[in-house]
Design a protein around this nucleic acid. Structure first.
Length: 804
DNA sequence: GAGTTTGAAACT
DNA sequence: CAGTTTCAAACTC
């Protein structure tokens, strides 16, 4: 394997870093010798996630933990230390997750373990000396986490409190822990906190392959972002598929039962990382059962089901699930819509995973799953305002492959957030594909289609069109009616009435392409045509699935990125981080802009003819547009390059025309320069800066179809193309975008301009204004220096230093 | 709703 | 790779 190489690589950077300020800083912070851990962090960055095979995941995870231990327990546990040194390096290498994140995970995990009555005891016995260290470090880590903008203060405080209490007493008793926490918040918080850590831990464990699918990073980030992390936990847990839930409960049980924290957990981790299924097995493995995967497997379904049922039904159980379940409901209610959406996402993800499992043959009681879904949905209905105000993300299917149709199946009830979630779930590409497989049966597909159709059709409540109607229409569609010009039109009209939000939903009107070419928006978006479409001779239907897929393949063979989201957001897509994306990265400019850039000549990029404008993003150097006046930002490079006066003039013009606030524009422009959408500063219009957060689209602007899907979709398409799952795993770090941002920026800035695509395109003679200057500028020292300055101004991260 | 404009996609 | 054609959305009236 790569192990040797990686180790070497790591070693090198370390030496370099030792001198780095960061290193020193870390050193100063920790009494322990961070030597390995710190370098590891940097290594993370330096190394590409792509290099990490799923196989490594488990080791990797272990490594995390061990690394942590090494750091903390350095002397306490020789055995662990040894293993950690080896594994730690490896793990760090492949895991794109920020070291911080890993630490956080470890901390939380450990915290939990320690806090857990049983676990704590064991831990004590195992690592007698580690406690004090842990106490010290844990707070630090937590604080660090808290330091993140979004981090919720509550959890941190709780944790800290706990730590303090621990100091005095040891981790032996959970009760004190609870009490302490209750002081700050509620018991729920405590539980949630625990759950959170569990979840994180779990994710860490699972973090391999399919788990990575979960954009845990995002989720986690969100998690931290809001004070209601506890809610998340609950939701997550709830949303968890049986296996995961079970796992979580297991973790809890582990701790409660007094299972050894580290060693056994590690076993579980390793097991879990191998595969989804395996993962589940591993997780399900009880303390004493770890060895027998098969047995576990058998048991798993039962247990999982039981567990799930218990949770869902709210029956009291031994597990925390009960508590969680209860808490979840309460918490869930309290969760803001936004959060819920996020949670939803998790949920959906889970669902998808489940589906995948089901398809694979392992059926953990689909009924149970459905039940959970329904329950959730019902919750949503009750608690959440169903209608996203403006153009709902829901409509944004783009970027989602045909599989989307299948995915939607699961959550018919909660249509509102589903799409969004799905779109973001990009991570599910593989699973999606599988789900979509014909084998799954027409029914599922159709069903999914139905839901999808319904979703797409879904009109804001105010529209006055009941969902039921849509559903009925959908059903009609399902019946197999090829294309229904009449009804579609009606519907269309309705949609139009509904407003722009509707427009976001793809409806095609193809006449000659048979909806099998990219001309067709539906096809291009990776979704089947539905009733509202006015297409003729449409082949983009489940009935013609084979044809569709074949055509799709063909097109992809021609252009692998054909179905990739047209608008790519750096931060979300995390191309740099993505394992698979790396492959893509070479092809796709990782700019936060339109994938290929526009070629507008007459529209001045002020009309929807312009894909950039349509996508709500500014034009980039990739664009070959003429007279660009894109209100979302003009070609970034050129903007800078061009004389200020010219720019200003243009800006003023734009402002006048668009009515956009000049200041805003300036900001945008500056952002464009940086081309770092992912960073705190949005590259594109502010409103879109954080699609993840479900920012409302301005009424003025229609939701760019690909907007929300950008991040995930990117990954998605990658996955789709390559059929690799994963992708998102790299994100776990969300801890702080700030951290990642610089990393991403750096590459982007450095390469972004020089990126193959941009460079080539820029050169193109067509690019009237921009091209020549851009290229020149791109390479020009002045420009670079400017960017470099910007980068430098940003707090340097370890990752940046080491590699470059 | 018909016709025009526009630029992406597809083709040569 | 450039030029041309096809196509369907966006736009206008």
């Amino acid at each position: 394997m790569d192990t040797p190489e990686k180790a070497t690589q790591i070693a090198t950077p370390l030496s370099k870093f030792e001198d780095s300020p960061v290193f020193n800083y870390i050193n100063s912070l920790s009494p322990i010798k961070p030597v390995k851990s710190i370098p590891i962090t940097q290594t993370f960055n330096s190394l590409n996630f792509s290099s990490l095979p799923s196989i490594f995941t488990s080791p990797h995870v272990i490594a995390h933990r061990e690394t942590r231990f090494l750091k903390r327990n350095n002397c306490s546990d020789p055995t662990k230390a040894g293993s950690s040194s080896e594994n730690g390096n490896k793990a760090c290498t492949d895991d794109g997750v920020a070291m911080d994140a890993s630490q956080l995970y470890d901390n939380s995990a450990q915290l939990q373990e320690n806090f857990d009555p049983g676990a704590s005891i064991e831990d004590d016995s195992v690592e007698p000396s580690s406690d004090s260290k842990f106490v010290i470090e844990l707070p630090r880590a937590l604080k660090y986490d808290c330091g993140s903008p979004g981090c919720s203060s509550t959890p941190c405080s709780v944790i800290e409190t706990n730590c303090v209490s621990e100091k005095d007493r040891t981790f032996a008793s959970v009760v004190p822990f609870v009490e302490k926490d209750s002081e700050n918040g509620s018991f729920e918080d405590e539980v949630h906190l625990q759950g959170t850590s569990q979840i994180e831990q779990k994710k860490d464990e699972v973090g391999c392959d399919w788990e990575s699918l979960i954009s845990d990073a995002q989720d986690l980030l969100i998690f931290n972002y809001h004070n209601e992390s506890e809610v998340f936990k609950g939701l997550i847990q709830k949303s968890m598929d049986p296996g995961e839930r079970f796992c979580t409960s297991l973790v809890t049980q582990f701790s409660q039962n007094g299972l050894s924290g580290e060693p056994k957990l590690q076993m579980v981790d390793s097991v879990g990382c191998s595969q989804q299924h395996e993962m589940m097995e591993g997780r399900s493995a009880q303390p004493g059962e770890t060895s027998e995967l098969k047995e576990i497997n058998e048991i798993e379904d039962n247990l999982a089901n039981d567990d799930l049922n218990n949770c869902l039904t709210g029956n009291p159980s031994e597990n925390m699930d009960d508590e969680v379940g209860v808490c979840v409901q309460d918490a869930y209610k309290r969760v803001p819509t936004l959060h819920r959406g996020m949670l939803r996402r998790c949920l959906d993800f889970e669902r998808v995973a489940r589906r995948k499992n089901l398809n694979d043959g392992s059926n953990c009681s689909s009924s149970v799953l459905l039940q959970s879904n329904e329950e959730i949905a019902s919750e949503d209905n009750q608690l959440v305002p169903l209608r996203p105000t403006s153009d709902s993300p829901r409509c944004i299917l783009p970027g989602i492959g045909l599989h989307l149709n299948a995915l939607t199946l699961a959550s018919q009830d909660n249509k509102n957030f589903k799409l969004e979630i799905f779109s973001r779930q990009l991570s599910l590409p593989t699973s999606t594909a599988f789900i979509h497989s014909p084998e799954s049966g027409q029914e599922p597909v159709q069903e999914s289609l139905t839901s999808a159709a319904a979703e797409r059709d879904m009109v804001p409540v105010d529209d006055g069109v009941p969902l039921a109607e849509d559903a009925s229409q959908t059903s009609a569609y399902l019946v197999g009616e090829e294309s229904n010009p009449n009804s579609p039109k009606k519907k269309r009209r309705r949609m139009e009435l509904a407003g722009e939000s509707e427009s976001a939903c793809k409806r095609c009107n193809c006449k000659k392409s048979k909806c099998l070419k990219l001309y067709c928006e539906c096809f291009a978006a990776g979704v089947y045509c539905i009733e509202p479409c006015s297409c003729q001779d449409c082949f983009n239907k489940p009935i013609h699935e084979d044809t569709v897929l074949a055509t799709r393949k063909q097109i992809e063979s021609r252009n692998p990125l054909a179905f990739a989201p047209k608008v790519i957001r750096n931060s979300d897509s995390v191309p740099e981080q993505g394992l698979h994306l790396q492959d893509e990265s070479s092809k796709t400019p990782a700019s936060a802009r339109h994938k290929r850039g526009c070629n507008c000549k007459k529209s001045s990029c002020l009309k929807k003819y312009c894909e950039c404008y349509q996508g709500g993003v500014g034009c980039s150097i990739n664009c070959r547009c003429e007279g660009c006046k894109n209100t979302f930002g003009r070609k970034d490079g050129s903007a800078i390059m061009e004389t200020d006066t010219e720019q200003e003039e243009e800006e003023s013009e734009t402002c006048e025309k668009s009515g956009v606030d000049p200041i805003l524009q300036r900001i945008e422009i500056s952002n464009n320069e940086e081309q770092n959408p992912g960073s705190a500063l949005p590259t594109t219009p502010l409103q879109y800066s954080r699609p993840m957060v479900q920012l409302p689209f301005s009424s003025k602007f229609k939701p760019p179809r690909s907007l929300l899907s950008i991040g995930p979709s990117t990954a998605f398409y990658t996955g789709l193309n390559y059929g690799k799952p994963s992708i998102l795993r790299s994100q776990p770090k969300f801890e702080k975008r700030l951290q990642t941002a610089p990393e991403e920026e750096m590459p982007e800035i450095l390469r972004g301009n020089s990126s193959p695509g941009s460079g080539v395109k820029t050169v193109s003679p067509k690019s009237k204004r921009v091209s020549p200057p851009n290229n020149v500028l791109g390479s020009s020292p002045s420009r670079r220096s400017g960017r470099k300055l910007i980068l430098q101004s940003i707090p340097s991260f370890p990752s940046l230093t080491p590699q470059h």
